[in-house]
Amino acid sequence: MEEFVWPDPPEQTAFPVAKAGYPFIFSAAFATAVFALLGLVVPALLGLFATLCICCFFRDPDRVVPNVEGGVVSPADGKVIFVGPVAENPFMEGPALKISVFMTVFNVHVNRVPVEGRIADVVYHPGKFFSANLDKASDDNERNAVILETSRGERICFVQIAGLIARRIICHVKQGDTVRKGQRFGLICFGSRLDVYLPAGAVPRVQAGDKVQAGTSLLGSLI
C-alpha cells in the first residue's frame, strides 16, 4: 500500500493560486498599474505590496494525503483550538468528537475533504462575523456545514465558519457528490475556522495548540 496518495492532479505551475482569488489579484494589480502610470510612487508601491499579499493569501499548494485506513485529515491549515467531546451539535444526532481549526490571514485558506465518502447534505446558515477563535463563532457566525457519509455508514460533518474579516464562504461540493480524502472542496476568504464533528467513538490524533495542514495532518481516526 502506498504511504501517500494524490487526491487531486498536481498543478503545472510553481505557485498555484486558487481561482477565487483572481478577481482580487487582478483588481489590485490594475490599481497598481494605474498609480504607476500616473507617477504616484507611494500608492503604486503600496498597491504592489497589496497585490503580493493577496497572491500569498490565495496560494493553493499541492498536497499529498497519508494513506491511513480510517484516518481523518485536517480540512484546513491552522492551529487546533479545541478537541473534545460534545453532547450534541446542530448537524448530527447524538454526541460527537469536535475538533476546531483556526486559520489566520497567513494560512492557506483552501479547504480539503477530511475523509472519502458521499456528500449527504450541505447546509448554509447566515450569521454574524465574530472573531473565529471565539467559542460563540460555532453557533453565531455565518457558516456552511457539509455532512458526509463514509462507505461504512459513518457520518461526519465539517463546517466552514466565517471570521471577523471573512465575508465569503465558497463550497464546490453538493449533495450526492462522491469525494476523495484530501480533495479540495472550497475556501473562506480572509481568516476563518473549520469545525469537524466525528462519531463519538473516534480517536483524536491532535490536541489544542497543535499546528496542522489541510490534507496532510491527521486529526483523528475512525474506529
Score class of each variant (00 low, 15 high):
200 A>C: 05
102 F>L: 00
184 R>P: 10
148 L>S: 00
55 C>M: 12
186 G>C: 05
162 A>H: 09
188 I>K: 10
60 D>P: 01
112 R>W: 00
147 I>R: 14
144 N>V: 00
4 F>T: 07
132 A>G: 14
60 D>R: 00
220 G>S: 07
17 V>F: 01
10 P>S: 04
117 G>S: 04
27 S>D: 03
203 V>Q: 14
1 M>G: 15
27 S>F: 13
67 N>Y: 12
60 D>G: 01
121 D>E: 15
161 I>E: 09
187 L>V: 01
166 A>R: 15
190 F>Y: 10
219 L>F: 04
200 A>I: 14
88 E>D: 13
17 V>W: 05
36 A>D: 13
10 P>K: 02
99 I>F: 06
60 D>Y: 00
20 A>Q: 14
13 T>R: 13
19 K>G: 05
223 I>V: 12
190 F>Q: 07
146 V>T: 08
43 P>T: 04
65 V>I: 10
50 A>M: 13
194 L>H: 01
145 A>Q: 05
136 K>Y: 03
40 L>P: 07
3 E>Y: 10
10 P>M: 00
197 Y>E: 05
220 G>A: 08
119 I>W: 09
64 V>I: 06
87 A>R: 12
42 V>A: 13
196 V>K: 12
52 L>M: 10
109 H>C: 00
13 T>L: 03
192 S>A: 12
22 Y>Q: 06
104 T>F: 01
184 R>N: 06
31 A>V: 13
209 G>M: 03
177 D>N: 09
11 E>L: 03
109 H>G: 00
53 C>E: 14
167 R>S: 01
126 P>Y: 05
53 C>Y: 07
59 R>I: 01
24 F>D: 14
123 V>A: 13
210 D>A: 06
124 Y>F: 14
197 Y>K: 01
202 A>Y: 02
135 D>P: 05
155 R>D: 06
145 A>G: 10
176 G>F: 00
221 S>T: 14
148 L>A: 04
207 Q>I: 00
196 V>W: 08
177 D>K: 01
159 V>W: 08
209 G>P: 05
43 P>N: 03
223 I>L: 11
189 C>S: 10
84 G>I: 09
216 T>S: 13
84 G>Q: 12
101 V>K: 11
134 L>I: 02
182 G>V: 01
40 L>M: 13
53 C>Q: 15
